[in-house]
Design a protein around this nucleic acid. Sequence first.
DNA 1: CAATTTTATTTAATAAGTCTAACAATTATT
DNA 2: AATAATTGTTAGACTTATTAAATAAAATTG
Lengths: 148, 148
Amino acid sequence: MKNIQKLTPSLENYLEAILFIETRNRVARVKDIADHLKVQMSSVTVALKNLKEKDLVNYEKNSFIILTEKGKTIAANTQRKHDIIRYFMENILLLKPSVADTTACEIEHIIDIDTAVKISNCSDFINEMKKKSGISEKEWETLLIKEN
Amino acid sequence: MKNIQKLTPSLENYLEAILFIETRNRVARVKDIADHLKVQMSSVTVALKNLKEKDLVNYEKNSFIILTEKGKTIAANTQRKHDIIRYFMENILLLKPSVADTTACEIEHIIDIDTAVKISNCSDFINEMKKKSGISEKEWETLLIKEN
DNA sequence: CAATTTTATTTAATAAGTCTAACAATTATT
DNA sequence: AATAATTGTTAGACTTATTAAATAAAATTG
């Protein structure tokens, strides 16, 4: 049985941000999340209520914030998708790191984890084939941007 | 000088739909667009006002609809991005055609045309390498889904 | 510990996109 | 041409996500 309740991109980003902060500090605070996502604290408060309702975070008013197991799973999947897409965008498609990152932050909400894994395997395959065929970075860049 | 005014995904989808219909019939009508995008006609009317304001369609109340040159350029780019992503999703990542299509319909609004071209060249590269290395479809599928 | 600063919440407003329902215009049918 | 059917528009409501401003709670500091 798959995750039926599909989250909005916005809520998924909140979960991802909370996981990111949780792994550095022990818990996340509203301000941390707001700073990380570059939104106002009031937006965070609203989102947290929503996530709590969906049983994705444990959170009491004016207190700290921790992901539930359910929330952690979604956050970790989202983060993994992000990393895979960012890698592909930056190291295979040769986009600027900042563009690779913001692009990943959008596509991560569109594809599922299985598709992301396939992209990761594609990245590996391309890297291997580049090496095996002795394609230089310069040659790869040229190949990438050629219009047929 | 690049396109400064970034359109919303919704509006880009309307342009794409209008181009699709225009190339079949001579002009697009509200109902055609509504059917194609599976929205209500009232949503189309609202969107058209918006697109007209941005000078992307020529359109008078209760009359036919034609893209402006500006609108046609955006629509064509969007369509091209769609096709490239769909191809990659379906033939490289081996997603179901319907899933490949809906995924393309979302990612097309996130990446720019240059990035799409790079993805297209990646698809070509992978196809060549599969052939050159004698990788069968079955082997490719296995390679794709393996978890490291 | 009182005052100040920082952090958090609530409320009201805005924006985009959609829908339903009522109405209007156009087109087809007899 | 009158009526019916189809197509198109308007108006109002709803949803999601955001903000700014007012208020409240918590933490810091002198």
